[in-house]
Every structure is written in C-alpha cells, then in structure tokens.
Design a protein around this nucleic acid. Structure first.
Lengths: 332, 332
DNA sequence: TTGTATGCGTTATCAG
DNA sequence: CTGATAACGCATACAA
C-alpha cells in the first residue's frame, strides 16, 4: 500500500537496518550511504510508519490532555505552555470530558491501550483512590488543582491564598459585606472552590468579621449562576457591597444583572472574578480577577511529567505557582 | 512488562487466536470458552495494546482535528458535534496550530506516520494545491470554510449569504452608512471574510448604495482590532451609523470603545458580529450576530468523512448548512 | 469450534 | 560501518 522502509532499502541498495539507522541519526553510518539513503527517502516520499516504530519501542510520544471543554478559554494558555514544552519530542493530544466521569474514564483508556505515553488531567472528576491506582501504573499529572490525599504529581496555584488575597483587597479598601459566589449547588463543590472559600473565610476572620451564610451563594462556574447570584443577593434585606466569584463567568453574570437592575458596578457594588480569561479584560466594565500563570503551569506540568517518565521514578510533588490579583474597573 | 494477549491465552489454557476472537466478538467461539477467556482477562487486568492491533489492521480509529486555538470558543460546539458523531468508533484528537502554517504541516505528519486515520482542518493555512495533494493520499475534510478550487470535502455555511443577510438587516431598518470590519490587514484576507465582504457589497448594491472604501477597515479577527476600527471610523468626517464585523470579538472591541467615547450602541451606532460565541450573549449590550450551526457542522463533517473512509471513495462535495441571524441589543 | 503460523513496519541485537 | 534476523502485540488465513 504505502511505501515502507523495505522499499527504501531495496531502492537504495542497502539493508533495512541501515535505513533505520539513518532515520534515527545513528552515528554508525558513513556519510555517503546516509546521503544516498536520504536521497531515496525523498525520491520515494517515504515517511516512517509510527505504528511499527511505536510497537517496537513501546512508546508513542503522545501525551493526552483531558480538559472539561474547549469552551472555557481559561485552558488555552495552559495548553499552549504544554505544547511548547512538549515539542518536538511529544505531541499533546487534547480531548474533552465535558466534566463527565464516564467520558474521562473512556479517555483514560488511551493509557491502557498505549495510544499515549502519559496523561495530564485538568479538572478531573476522579477521586484520590482512583488517581492513586492510575498513577501506580501510568505516568499522570494534575494541572490547576490537587486532589487531597492523592499521591500524584500536580501543578496549581494556592487557591486558599488566592481567595484570601482577593477578599483582603475588598476589606482593605473598606468593604465589609462581602459575598461569595462559588460551586457546590449539588453538595460537592469543586476542589479549587473549596480552597478559595477557605481563603475567603480566613480573610474575614482576620478582619474580625463573622461569616454570614446568606452571603454565600452556591451554584456552578457558569454565567447563568452569576445572574442568579445577583438576584439572590439583592433579595436580601442588606445585600453585599462586594462579591468574590470563583470564576470570571460568574462575575460577568453578576455584573450583567447588576447593570440591568441599575446597580453601579465598581462603586455601589464591587465584583471580583477568577482566572483572568480574555472576557474579563474585554467586559464592560473590565473585571477585577485573580490570574493564574497558565502558560507557566502548562510548561511546568509537562516538564515535571517528562522528568518522571525519563527517570522511571514517580514524584508526586504538589508544585505551587504564583497567582496575581489583577485590578480592573469592577473591583473599585 | 505489561500483560499481553499471550499471558491471557496461557492462563486461560487457549491459543492467542481464541483470545483475539473473544476480544473482537467473533462469532466462531463457544460460549463457555468465551466466558472463561473473559474471566481471565478480568483477573489479569488485561487490556489490548492498540499499537499491535493498529499495526496489524493498519488503522488507529483516531481522527485529528486541527484548530487555530482553543482560545476561540467558537470551535467548541463544532468539536462537541464531531466527538458525538465519531464515538465510539473514533476518538477525536484536537491539536492547535495557532494559525501557523509550519505547525499545521507538522501536525499533518500524523497522517503520514499513521498516528491518525484522517484529519479535519478548521481554519487551515494550506492553499488549494497543497490540499489537493493531501486529499489524494489521505482522508481529509475542511470545516467552517471551503478553499476555492480545492477538491476536498468541506462543510461550511454560505458566508456570502450570511454577510448579505446581516447587512440587509441594517439596511431594511433604515441605516445607510454601513461600515465593514474585516480581516486582510496583511493583504490576504481569510477566505470566510472574503465571502462575507461579497455579501456586504451585494446588499449595498441592491439598495443602490455605493461602497465607500473608507467604510471598510481591514485588520484581523481580534478584539484589539475592534477597538482600532472604532477609532478609525470616528476619525472620519461622517462615521458609519452601523458596523458589520466578521467576528464577535471585533464587535466587542467596537462596542467597548464606543462606550468609552460616549457613543450609544444600539441606537446611535448599530453593531453586528459573527459566530455567536458565548461572549456575544453575555456582553453588555448583547451582541447581534450571525450564528453558525456549530454542533451540526461538527456532526456532518465527521459523518461525511467517515463515509468517505468506508467507501474508499473521495467525495469532495461542499456541504452548506444554514446560518441564522441573532438579534440582540447592539443591532438596534 | 479451535490452534498454528504468518506478517503488519519498525528497531535492536548480534555477527561480520 | 553494514547486514541478517528476531522481536514488539495483535489479527487473520488456513488447517485441523
């Protein structure tokens, strides 16, 4: 069907071993034969069939990245970092799980059946036990979050500190009625949200403010929940004067509804989001937010993962990178 | 290293052929042996190594999707459609080209080296000749655009008609000074933009309006160019009273800058975007836009591509799906 | 219904 | 420096 290494060998008048050596830049081949082989490779338009190579070497040079969705542009910088660190040795294959455990598990079969050499999980649905079991047999890493108790390499920010910083910025500038919009409508909040909520609580505690349950709205990460959160807060006798949201989309929803209700965001109500997605700088008003170093996180997770693969060891360090509070109009 | 089909065969007391037959649900195997084999498969925690299988069958059941970037959430619905149509037979592997020809060509090597069985190109940089050459040897398809003269399967909307519809909506409601914000700052505009511009021109012509070159701003697809476009238009003695942008991000930029300059969007100035990305419904004001049937496009392109692969034929039809004008506040 | 044997395309080992 | 050959894990044609 296609032209194989055999065809090249025959045409060049050498053995397949020699052609293979040329392909892999093996030193032990004379310049002239190498040149001749390369010529025929070009003539015949040959390119090696990786299925054969991979089978023989028992590796694919592919790394799987599982993301919840390409909808959330938050992941795009991370992916870029991952790719630039991986190339040219590895290709990053992106697959989407839609935050559905079944889909994620189906994708992880690519580890079992050797379609990929390793996997990076972004926003995983797996618990510590499942991750441990996986990490025992395969090279995996988490990005953007760590799972408490799991012995798995992870790269993330310190969500607790990030939540603390965001809320402190409100408190320092004099706001006292701080609302929180977070996940957990269904009872189990996202791990990152839990950390951010802890930071929210610590900040209030340090300022001697008692946490009011009615100032905490639990939904998911989406825009629509931001709309709902505003409606809820403004149904209270005394609404918050500042709101910390665990995503920029939530913040956008709050801001949108505030505008519709005639509440001035940036003066009457302050709003802070999370992630610094491109929307947050384009929105009207610009959204104050916590930026994660996405590109650096991507590079780091691949670098550490590849180190693990090469060394054969299984480091399960939790790498923490620095976040940054970005002040825009919505934050006062 | 890992447990193979041989280990299963030995443990189950059968030949590898029988195990293989069980794995592939071959009819010619007795229920009892099948049950026994399945038991040992479970016991040993065996899963087939696809490298061996793929090499043997000369197929991987992977389809590559090349997108410019995961930043543009526009592609996410398409990807979702592609995946749902492909599963469970195929996995969709997403890779990003960042609109860079070199990267795209490197990714296409996954066709040569058999990492994937086929590829879908979204926002390709390749020209007709290169596409033709590729399509001759491999199964490929374009999505979201067609390349004039290329004999390649494509699924897209009719950009000319879409541009026409958007501009007509302005004209019918009485606007006469229609601006266009499109790509092509560097001389070669995106193919889809060219179609949309044709529609813009046809609409104006039908209403007996002469196209004014100073009402056409050429940049790229990005938000920042929208800001620049507004500044440019409002430096004219008589600025447009409506602007058609070839992307929602451009529209967002125009709207943002208009707000900063005290121009009321939706009354004083009307703005229409393109793609109906999630931003366009969340923006303030909501952005009038042309929606592409992303999910359906994704399903369609995979369905047709797989048909091509199965039949061995190489249909190079240009499938056109229906677009839809979505009216929001920015459009008057 | 089951087993034997071959080959997919490549790399690595071992001689020469 | 080069060639012959075995193996990687699996599916299948052919025998039994």
């Amino acid at each position: 069907m296609s032209v194989t290494i055999k065809d090249v060998a025959k045409a060049a008048g050498v053995s397949v071993a020699t052609v293979s050596r040329v392909l892999n830049n093996s030193a032990a081949v004379s310049d002239e034969t190498a040149a001749a082989v390369n010529d025929t490779i070009r003539e015949l338009g040959y390119s090696p069939n990786f299925l054969g190579r991979n089978l023989r070497k028992c590796e694919t040079n592919n790394i799987l990245a599982i993301i919840p969705s390409t909808e959330q542009s938050f992941y795009s910088e991370i992916i870029k970092g991952m790719q630039e660190e991986a190339n040219p040795e590895y290709d990053i294959l992106i697959c989407t799980s839609y935050s559905y455990l079944g889909t994620e598990m189906r994708l992880l079969e690519m580890l079992y059946n050797r379609t990929v050499d390793a996997a990076v999980l972004l926003g995983t649905q797996l618990d510590a036990a499942a991750l441990d079991e996986l990490a025992e047999k395969y090279s995996i890493a988490l990005c953007c979050e760590r799972v408490e108790g799991a012995r798995v390499l992870s790269v993330a920010i310190n969500d607790e500190a990030a939540g603390y910083d965001a809320v402190c910025a409100f408190l320092i500038k004099g706001r006292r009625r701080i609302g929180l919009v977070t996940t957990g409508a269904d009872g189990n909040a996202a791990l990152t949200s839990v950390g951010r909520e802890k930071g929210y609580r610590r900040a209030l505690a340090e300022f001697g403010i008692k946490v009011k349950d009615e100032y905490i709205f639990r939904g998911n990460y989406d825009y629509e929940q931001g709309l709902a959160a505003f409606d809820y807060f403004y149904s209270l006798p005394e609404p918050p004067d500042a709101v910390f949201c665990v995503s920029d989309l939530l913040a956008a929803g709050v801001i949108r509804r505030a505008g519709e209700r005639g509440i001035k965001v940036g003066s009457e109500l302050w709003v802070c989001g999370f992630d610094n997605i491109s929307l947050s700088r384009m929105y009207i008003p610009g959204i104050t937010t916590v930026a994660q170093p996405g590109y650096e996180m991507g590079r780091t997770v691949i670098r550490r993962l590849v180190e693990n693969m090469r060394s054969g060891k299984h480091s399960c360090e939790n790498v923490i990178l620095e976040h940054e509070l970005i002040i825009r109009q919505s934050g006062g």
